[in-house]
Design a protein around this nucleic acid. Structure first.
Lengths: 188, 188
DNA sequence: ATCGATGTGGAGGCCATCTCCATTTTCGAC
DNA sequence: GTCGAAAATGGAGATGGCCTCCACATCGAT
């Protein structure tokens, strides 16, 4: 991440306020009903300030997304340190579904924006992908799962879970996808 | 689909022209670089005509999408009639990846639009989902695959494949996802 | 050939997005 | 503490894409 310049005290405050407001609006799923300009006063700033900090909707989404990804990566490392490789992977994937389920609105918003400018957010996903790759290769080296499957395939499956946010039986289907992936991975 | 009124001869011609042009632009991946207004002359019609036939970008996408879905459903039925259930399912999923690979731009465009207004296109996907469900339940009844997994889970995985269009190793990963799903389905 | 019904097209209104700069705030130096 | 340069602010207004509207053209039944 570009921590190029230390940012003045007030600027940092405004930036934080924007991110907090964004998180709230995202979670409520109201992001698309809102003119981008109208979002600024919600965080107590002017439109100019909003645009300087986040030139586009996507930039704002990416910033929020980074927080999410960081939390998930922490979880991955934590699990990797306390469970056998295969169980760590399984637990992580299950937790991920839980996490998405607990933040429906956020996931929905991020998925939509991700589709629009996937290149921008794909960059943000790198950390997550590295975490998943770490879990997969550890389990494979351990011999607990096959080693002829690209970890990226699991990212794809997760992508599908996140993107299909509005299916009626989302939770059941998401769990089943994880089951299929995990059982598929157990094949020699 | 609403074939409510027979549509006058010239109207049908313009409509076809629009669809043909749309298909071309979609496939070239230029749909989002284009003002919707500028799209009309590309098909040799005025903006008014464009908007009457397709009130929104999404409506146009949905129309194109219907054609794709119909082709895939035909393929599903064809396979279901000529192969044992489990093989039909496997062949269909592999074919689907082929199909998407062969129409990258189209898939990319549709995936993006699907995320924006997924409700609109979810309706269009119903036929596809029914085809998949048919293949899955047939294979399950045959005892060739487990029966405790919701067919919707396979739709989710496919959704992931379609949505992750711009990953560097897309083809490899897509194939691996299908492998995981198929192997996962073979578990009792 | 006539005429009512149906379809056409593009000029113009509307409104969300983004820019620009006069004013205000911060903070290091003295 | 206070001064001044640099940084940040915010909202008025320009920009430009989306969509509507209706005078005119085309169709096709009689």
């Amino acid at each position: 991440m570009t921590t190029g310049k230390p940012l003045r005290a007030d600027a940092q405050r405004k930036r934080d306020a924007l991110l907090a407001a964004a998180r709230k609006v995202f979670d409520a799923g109201e992001f698309f009903d809102l003119r981008f300009d109208d979002f600024a006063p919600l965080a107590g700033v002017g439109t100019g300030t909003l645009y300087r900090h986040f030139p586009t909707r996507e930039a704002l989404a990416e910033a929020v997304y980074h927080g999410e990804v960081a939390a998930l990566c922490d979880r991955a490392h934590q699990l990797q340190g306390t469970l056998p490789p295969a169980e760590a992977l399984a637990a992580f994937l299950r937790d991920m579904v839980d996490h998405i389920a607990a933040h429906q609105g956020l996931a929905r918003t991020l998925a939509t924006l991700m589709a629009d400018r996937s290149s921008a957010l794909a960059e943000g996903s790198q950390a997550l992908e590295q975490a998943v790759t770490g879990l997969v290769t550890a389990a494979a080296r351990d011999g607990a799962i096959r080693d002829d499957v690209d970890p990226g395939a699991i990212m794809m499956a997760l992508h599908g879970i996140g993107a299909a946010h509005d299916r009626p039986h989302w939770r059941t289907e998401a769990d089943d996808v994880i089951t299929l992936v995990l059982d598929g991975l157990r094949q020699a």
